[in-house]
Simulated assay, not measured.
Amino acid sequence: MNAKLSSFLISIVVFGSLLGVCHGGELRKHFYKDSCPLAEDIVKEIIWKRVASNSTLPAKFLRMHFHDCFVRGCDASVLLDSTANNQAEKEATPNLSLGGFDVIDEVKTELEKTCPGVVSCADIVALAARDSVSYQFQRPIWEVLTGRRDGSISRISDAFRNIPSPFFNFSSLKQSFAKKSLTVHDLVVLSGGHTIGVGHCNFFSQRLYNFTAGKNDADPSLNSTYAAFLKTQCKSLSNNITIVPMDPGSPLSFDNNYFKNLKLNQGLFQSDAALLTNKEATNTVDELLDSQDFFTEFGQSMKRMGAIDVLTGSLGEIRQKCNVVNS
């Protein structure tokens, strides 16, 4: 092999391995097999126990994982509390309705008793999202690679800049996901997470009462029967307390009904309806009307999302408590 070719191949290998680190190349199955063999069992046991008595938790953990990964990567920065000198991600409007932090703390406490300083909060969040959604099926429905480490920075401004808004049009959604190296396909598939959980009136009521500023009209792309129902729940633009299910047919069941609703123009948010304004996205919606395709693709997209800008190896730290950095 001549020197030039050899040098070129080495460059390719180095560049490829750098890409691997950026996108979770150092994450792997059963990362804690030797250092904390019971880690994943402990997470699952506590999460399943809590979900059994609180059916709203799967939506909360799925959203927590999403909001964590989209801001500074999947580094558990969303769990950090504000300090005297810094407002953390938790304080940002999109994160004010997050929940389940107490359960994450419970898992972390148990893991610290079993294997002190070994399991990251970032991995706990990723596993909690999978395990909580999987409780309904009594088996894991996607694979979670582990080996993430925890970040030490959490800023309110980063959350505002990076978390996609329910008011986004398709172009803004595509751009937001592309910044995280996620495709239009991932965007549509991951939107399927809206098959569980609730939305606050103030994040969609402009579609009911003031779609065109000053005209007091409704969004013409919203199913009129569904709009009439939503008006009975959200009686004014200023209502920021009332919540409604994002999937009115089966709000606690993880299934592909979100896409069936979408085809009936019953997507709750502007960002949901936006998926039907692009041909590639609409084609993907049609594919996901097949339940098995949805479950398969959701698992793959979650694996890609769970690898966004992860800290691995010697980067970051393993927090002793998930809400504060190590002293």
Rank of each mutant, 00 (worst) to 15 (best):
A59L: 02
K60E: 10
F66Y: 11
N85D: 15
N85E: 15
V78N: 12
H65V: 02
A88Y: 06
A52V: 00
H67W: 04
L80Q: 10
V71I: 08
T56K: 09
C74R: 01
H67V: 07
G99P: 07
P94Y: 06
N54F: 01
G99T: 10
H65I: 03
P58R: 03
T93A: 14
L62Q: 11
S82M: 14
M64G: 08
N95V: 10
E89Q: 15
S53N: 10
R63K: 13
T93M: 13
F61L: 02
C74Y: 05
P58T: 05
A84T: 14
L80P: 10
P58W: 01
T93E: 13
H67N: 12
A76W: 00
V78C: 08
D81L: 12
G99V: 10
N86D: 12
L98A: 10
S82K: 13
A59T: 04
A76H: 01
L57D: 03
L79I: 09
H67Q: 11
A59Y: 01
L62W: 09
N86W: 08
S55C: 04
G99Q: 12
G73V: 00
P94V: 07
N54K: 06
D68L: 03
S82A: 14
E89P: 02
N54Q: 05
N54P: 04
L57H: 01
E89N: 13
L79R: 09
A84E: 15
L96Y: 05
F66C: 04
E91F: 10
T83S: 15
S82Y: 11
L96N: 14
P94M: 05
R72K: 06
D81S: 13
F61D: 02
C69I: 03
G73E: 00
D81Q: 14
S97L: 10
A52L: 02
F61S: 04
L80F: 09
A92F: 05
A59M: 01
G73P: 00
G73L: 00
Q87W: 11
N86M: 13
A52S: 14
R72F: 01
C69P: 04
R63W: 07
S82H: 12
L79M: 14
S77R: 03
F66D: 06
D81P: 08
T83E: 11
V71Q: 05
D68H: 04
N95H: 10
F61G: 05
L57S: 02
N95Y: 09
L62P: 03
T93I: 15
A92R: 05
N54C: 04
A52I: 02
L96P: 08
N54R: 05
K60R: 11
A84C: 09
N85G: 14
D81H: 15
A92V: 06
A88F: 09
C74A: 10
V78W: 06
G73K: 01
M64D: 08
M64W: 03
E91A: 12
A52Y: 00
S55I: 13
L57T: 00
N86T: 14
L80D: 06
S77M: 05
A76V: 02
L57P: 00
T83K: 14
A84S: 15
N54Y: 03
L62Y: 10
H65L: 06
L96T: 14
V71D: 07
